[in-house]
Design a binder for these strands. Structure first.
Length: 630
RNA sequence: GAUUCCGUAGCUCAGUUGGAUAGAGCAACUGCCUUCUAAGCAGUAGGUCGCGCGUUCGAAUCGCGCCGGGAUCACCA
């Protein structure tokens, strides 16, 4: 039984015996640092029962608790706040139970299974900053779930088919001259991305040509002419700029859809679907290049997957669900033969799941994929790590599955995260304002190197160790920067100012870990074998900072639990920072090896060691390494 | 327009299951390296928690209404 649990019980007892109040639940909170004490009970809610002044009520409860709970050393009352001081012996005993141990226990054999899907890239261009946030979040959430007693299966569904892939393929055929990653000296994903951009250039040029032709009255056919006239008439009478821009975009889209290069890409997609040998071969080759490139990026980022799905295998799924849904009356068929789910009663819209020509849409394949996964794995939860622009999509997806009566649908969860924005707005791949993931990682490592050299750090390391350190620090800074913000919120990334290495950052936390390790090495040289002796619990008067640190360590489990419940790594990030910051203050104001009493030296070394372990565990949950020296 | 998320220091963010005087970091200014690693520590300055009303002993936190911003609203993915 935890102390807080005991205190709650005793407080309920106190209220019963003092005021005959039948209160069922009371909770304590951490005492505000400006006041003396560790835990605080707010007594205002009990005033009705006590019919006494706040101060008197608090004092009476305080007296009761003091004489009934051994761990309470003393208490004080400020207005309606009862501040309890917990005896040092309690904290020392607690420390004895965790000294030198890991804060993370492996999940039991029969642990519930959670699937975490993340990353989900398209194979027509390299990973960018948005993917970085997605990958780091998915990976960290997986680690957090594992650490809190779940078995995690990390999955990645690769969008390896569709018109966008054909665009890259076509541009490569048109302009590539047989270029390969090897001949071009480029990572495969970047090479394919280059041709995607070339396609877009061509696409735009041809569209502008068409618009020019149309404005002079030359049209390929009458239908097109009618559409053109309809839109441009509206454009002429449009009043505000917003409406004009919208109509202009509509015209451009019409032109784009009629460019020869786009029609060729569509034709290629048709051939792909028909299983055309040549198209399939090119598709396999180019996707192969991309996968090699992605593998490198993933390795650098430090993320991995237990199972990779490909949409080329899953995009046909879902049609049998339609039959099932129609039979159950959850889905309906329109006169034109299209099938939809009517969700208007749930405050959503009608969602079409099968077009009138019988082909399926994105939602249909997501339904099918979910069902497939549920058959394959008996998961307790299935988490989709996808940006918040798809909130509505997942709402609809989950609702339809629930309506179809699948029990496992209750375990589906959309881990929705905010967009990464640049100082001048959203990233747009077409406008070339994307931040490339590989470049960003290289820059971070280079900055770490530069900073370390300027500060004269790590001079005694050999070249390989130095390179590893720069990677650990540079990528650590990047990962921490992205994970310390609440996933739900959109975040701002300013490449010009880059990411800091001071203050609330990974390098600061890593530095404190390194300092602990250095201290412990020195201690062993001085024959202080703190690992071999028991925690000395008698006659130690804890310094305020030492108690604070113990309280902080004590809350590791609670923070982990909350982070797992909310799927929120930022709680861990902020926790580790607070811990490191407090240790840093402690380190400055306290002598450890220079302390005269041997027992105190041992205790302080043990405390430092255990804090180091907590930092390492916490950073591990974020996917961030800690170095031994820097 | 509808739905939904958001608005806290100059900037980036904590704090939101209602509790005491709203916290960090960056940027600015002041000190501290012959002493366990200064990617550090200590300090100064910086706030109408978007605005208003309400609920409450008590509101950054809950409710309602405004103002401002993002996202989504296809037989696209």
């Amino acid at each position: 039984m935890t102390l807080e649990h005991t205190l709650s019980q005793k407080t309920i007892e106190a209220l019963q015996s003092l005021y005959s109040a039948g209160i069922e639940k009371v909770s304590f909170e951490k005492t505000n640092p400006d006041f003396e004490g560790d835990l605080t009970l707010v007594v205002f809610p009990f005033l009705k029962a006590s019919k006494k002044k706040p101060e008197d009520t608090a004092t009476e409860i305080g007296n009761y608790l003091k004489s009934n709970v051994a761990e309470i050393a003393s208490f004080n009352v400020v207005k309606g706040f009862l501040n309890l001081v917990i005896a040092d012996a309690y904290w020392l005993n607690y420390f004895k139970s965790i000294n030198g141990r890991s804060f993370i226990k492996p999940a039991p054999e029969n642990a519930p299974v959670v699937m975490v899907e993340y990353s989900s890239p398209n194979t027509n261009k390299p990973l960018h900053l948005g993917h970085v946030r997605n990958n780091l979040l998915g990976f960290s959430v997986s680690e957090i779930l594992k650490a809190s007693g779940s078995k995690v299966i990390k999955t990645n569904i690769v969008n390896d088919r569709g018109i966008h892939i054909c665009k890259s393929m076509l541009a490569w055929q048109l302009f590539g001259n047989g270029e390969t990653p090897a001949s071009g000296g480029m990572k495969g994903d970047h090479l394919v991305g280059k041709y995607y951009v070339l396609f877009d250039k061509q696409y735009n040029a041809e569209a502008n040509e068409l618009l020019e032709k149309w404005s002079q009255g030359t049209f390929e056919n009458e239908e097109l002419q009618l559409k053109y006239i309809a839109i441009s008439t509206k454009l002429e009478s449009a009043k505000d700029d917003e409406a004009k821009a919208k109509l202009k975009a509509e015209l451009k889209d019409l032109a784009k859809a009629n460019t020869p290069v786009f029609k060729a890409a569509q034709e290629m997609l048709r051939k792909w679907e028909a299983g055309d040998k040549e198209v399939r071969a090119l598709w396999e080759t180019m996707n192969g290049w991309v996968y090699e490139g992605f593998a490198q990026s993933y390795k650098m980022l430090g993320v991995d997957f237990d199972k990779i799905y490909y949409e080329s295998n899953t995009y046909i799924l879902g049609k049998n669900i339609i039959e099932d849904g129609l039979a159950k009356g959850v889905l309906k068929r329109r006169p034109d033969n299209s099938v939809y789910a009517d969700l208007t009663a749930d405050g959503l819209d009608e969602k079409t799941l099968l077009r009138s020509d019988g082909t399926s849409v994105y939602m249909t394949q997501d339904l099918g994929t979910a069902l497939e996964r549920a058959k394959e794995v008996n998961f307790e939860k299935h988490i989709y790590t996808v940006g918040n622009e798809q909130d509505y999509h997942f709402k609809v997806l989950f609702l339809i599955l629930k309506k179809l009566g699948y029990k496992w649908a209750d375990g589906l969860y959309h881990l929705s995260y905010g967009m990464v924005e640049l100082p001048d707005g959203k990233m747009k791949s077409r406008e070339g304002t994307v931040v490339d993931a590989d470049e960003l990682m290289e820059e971070m490592i280079a900055t770490a190197k530069k900073t370390a050299e300027e500060l004269g750090k790590a001079q005694d390391l050999d070249t390989a160790d130095k390179e590893h350190l720069y990677k650990t620090v540079g990528l650590g800074a990047l990962k921490y920067f992205m994970l310390k913000v609440d996933p739900k919120k959109k975040m701002l990334f300013n490449p010009a100012e880059s990411i800091d290495f001071n203050g609330n950052t990974a390098p600061f936390i890593q530095f404190n870990y390194v300092r602990i390790r250095a201290l412990l090495r020195k201690a062993k040289e001085g024959l202080h074998n703190f690992e071999d002796v028991e925690v000395f619990t008698h006659n130690i008067h804890l310094l305020p900072k030492e108690k604070e640190l113990l309280v902080k360590l004590h809350s590791f489990d609670a923070v982990l639990k909350q982070a797992a419940a909310e799927l929120n790594p930022s709680l861990i990030a902020n926790y580790v920072y607070d811990l490191a910051k407090e240790y840093s203050q402690y380190y400055h104001e306290t002598n450890i090896l220079k302390e005269s009493e041997k027992d105190l030296i041992m205790f302080r070394l043990q405390l430092s060691n255990t804090i180091g372990i907590a930092i390492k565990c916490g950073m591990g949950l974020l996917g961030i390494e800690v170095p031994e020296r820097m």
